[in-house]
């Protein structure tokens, strides 16, 4: 294992120290591992909290700031944060308008956020609602598994709902919007290599040089199948086809995210976007906006994911609204 770390156990804490040095726009609670906006949101506006295991950066800490999240709770690498972190964040960011938790669908995240919401309600009376993202079409037997995983749509949701919260929309409206976004988005990923969790020190799975894993999750969970390594054009088909088979994206414009898993260079991501865009055009899908880069990663995994979100005019307007975070920044 070759990594830019001091010690595996200190990775998350040391990264938060670096983040604190890097910007004055964030305020870090190192003890509770919470990333806040340095300049809190105005009173009376709903606050957004997300969080999850570390290793997906810029998700979620990189999305704290004007127009997106109010706080992000960082867990250990690939391990959900704990309810006391979410509770502390909830108390800190609530402006008396309530708090929306954005939770990716993983067993641990669900349980920890659920406990946090129970504690927040019983201890503080703060009005908390949760929305769960589960957009990964790679998971087929949802009935017999923990269900579809929350992946790429989480990024788009945090942006759009964050902008709506900034406008002053109330908690139940935001919760409905968030559910609507999740229901209208689908993702699919592919891995060229495994990631290596620092505390483990060796690759999570073994993937030979001439093979790829189609339908990979953002923690190295196995995908639908393993195939001989294909060309970018073939891989684009493998990613887009199951998404289009799962949801009709021809009726409204879409936002497309071509996301890198962490170790694939941008030049490959641009190339992949071109292949994906070709398929979408051929399929009669109207791309309203796109996002290309590393937005929800899996440590040092090579590969990418495609996310499509079917949007209305209101969502596009919220997408275009100003955002000022480390990960997304425009209109300011």
């Amino acid at each position: 294992m070759k990594k830019l770390i001091n010690a595996p156990d200190n990775l998350v804490a040391d990264a938060l120290l670096g983040l604190a040095e890097a910007t004055t726009e964030l305020q870090i609670d190192h003890k509770n591992r919470i990333i806040y906006r340095a300049e809190p949101k105005q009173k009376g506006k709903v606050a957004l909290i997300s969080g999850g295991g570390s290793g997906h950066e810029p998700l979620h800490g990189g999305y704290v700031g004007l127009g997106m999240l109010d706080a992000a709770c960082a867990g250990e690498v690939f391990t959900s944060p704990t309810p006391d972190q979410m509770l502390a964040a909830t108390k800190q960011v609530d402006t008396a308008a309530g708090v929306l938790y954005i939770v990716k669908n993983y067993t641990g995240d669900i349980m920890n956020f659920e406990m946090a919401a129970e504690l927040a309600t019983s201890e503080t009376g703060i009005n908390v609602l949760s929305v769960v993202t589960n957009d990964d079409v790679a998971v087929q037997d949802s009935l017999y598994t923990a269900g579809r995983r929350g992946v790429g749509v989480t990024v788009l949701l945090e942006k759009i709902v964050g902008a709506a919260a900034e406008e002053g929309q109330d908690l139940s409206t935001l919760s409905t919007l968030a559910r609507d976004i999740n229901n209208n988005g689908r993702s699919m990923g592919i891995a060229l290599t495994s990631c290596t969790v620092p505390a483990v020190g060796k690759p999570t799975f073994d993937l030979p040089d001439n093979e790829m894993e189609i339908g990979i999750g953002i923690h190295g969970e196995p995908g639908r199948h393993r195939l001989p390594l294909g060309t970018a054009r073939e891989i684009a088909e493998q990613l887009v086809e199951p998404i289009l088979a799962d949801f009709n994206f021809t009726s409204r414009p879409v936002i497309v995210m071509l996301n890198g898993m962490g170790a694939s260079p941008l030049i490959e991501l641009y190339l992949m976007y071109g292949e994906v865009a070709k398929i979408l055009k051929r399929s009669g899908i109207n791309v309203a906006r796109n996002l290309i880069g590393n937005y929800i990663t899996a440590l040092d995994m090579a590969g990418c994911s495609v996310t499509l979100l079917s949007v209305d005019d209101q969502m596009i307007k919220l997408w275009d609204a100003p955002v000022k975070t480390l990960g997304l920044r425009w209109g300011i």
Partner: peptide, 15 residues
């Protein structure tokens, strides 16, 4: 346990 384990095991053993 709830505040230190994380993942699914924290809430399960903690509860």
């Amino acid at each position: 346990l709830v505040s230190t384990v994380g993942g699914a095991s924290g809430p399960l053993y903690g509860t």
